[in-house]
Design a protein around this nucleic acid. Structure first.
Ligand SMILES: [Mn+2]
Ligand SMILES: [Mn+2]
Ligand SMILES: [Zn+2]
Ligand SMILES: [Zn+2]
Lengths: 167, 167
DNA sequence: CGCTAATTGAGAACAATTAGCGATATTCGT
DNA sequence: ACGAATATCGCTAATTGTTCTCAATTAGCG
């Protein structure tokens, strides 16, 4: 389980002159309870709340604002996988930190860990004088099933951003 | 220099029932002549052509269509750095293949190479039965200059998507 | 409690990207 | 080299994801 609790969050906010709100608390909670390997977009989070806790519904504007805030504070990680919009997940430190392998045809995503990527990232950011916030190795590939259907393929067969994963 | 020439491009297109056009040839040429470390967005490419070769102007729609096509064929790489829209560059194989270190505060981008990342990517995609297309390690950090100005900072000081790099 | 400034929700506004369409140009077989 | 078939073009309008505006609300703090 991840240790970033609501109290820590609150004090980080206050230190910057920002405030803890029920909405921010709710969002942190949702991400902390999210099953391993699940990622949420702003829209996903919005609908998730309406379904599982309608009394805690949060407006889309606030969701976008909070996701951006929490990403800046390092609580969340912004993922740009192959679907045309951002997804978020908890930004977990080593040894929970991981990367993604994505099929560009069906968007299937597989998580994996790598110490050597972490090492490269620390070395590189250090050499350039950067304070390291996050590093993401994203591998783009074509899964076996998609390969069987031919690759490369004609435009009509490219997965559209919101196509259901159909395999 | 990169070896992917217009003839190879043409035959790959024809093999898929697609056609070579002056527009596609132009775009490939622009990317081949792009200085190392430069990345272009759709809009960048559009304006670049208007400036350096107005007689070869290409409509924005066609630019978007071509960038998508060429990315799917593996000619180009789509980069999601910290600026709110996609950028593209030639998808060069080893040993020109590289990764990016980005300052989340000012968007400064530094390229670097890493054999071990490549190795991890090949191993991982192989293990999962994926055909490897591209792998990108993106390191998010805060550069020295930005650190001096305080981090984390309050929302008003976050770089907005189109803010000029001001340092 | 009471002040002040941060935050919220609702909707309008925005920027990047895509879709539809009729006109044009490339391919390929003759 | 010619012509039919059809992919592609440029245009405009539509869509999508995200941000902004602003009045009402609320957290933090003495
Ligand atoms: Mn993940
Ligand atoms: Mn690059
Ligand atoms: Zn797949
Ligand atoms: Zn910077």
């Amino acid at each position: 389980m991840y240790s970033y609790d609501s109290t820590t969050f609150r004090s980080e906010l206050n230190q910057l002159g920002l405030r803890m709100t029920p909405q921010r608390e709710t969002i942190l909670e949702v991400f902390r309870e999210l099953p391993k390997g699940k990622h949420l977009s702003a829209e996903d989070l919005y609908h998730h709340l309406q379904e599982v806790a309608p009394e805690r519904k949060i407006s889309l504007s606030t969701i976008y604002r909070s996701l951006k805030l929490m990403t800046h504070l390092g609580l969340l990680r912004e993922l740009e996988l192959a679907e045309g919009h951002k997804h978020y997940e908890l930004n977990q430190p080593h040894p929970h930190h991981h990367h993604h392998l994505v099929c560009v045809r069906c968007n299937r995503t597989i998580e994996f860990k790598s110490d050597s990527v972490l090492k490269v990232s620390m070395k590189t950011s250090g050499r350039e004088g950067f304070h390291l916030l996050d590093c993401q190795l994203t591998i783009h590939g074509v899964c076996v099933e998609a390969l069987k259907r031919g690759w490369p393929s004609v435009p009509q067969e490219w997965s559209c951003p919101h196509a259901p994963v159909d395999e």
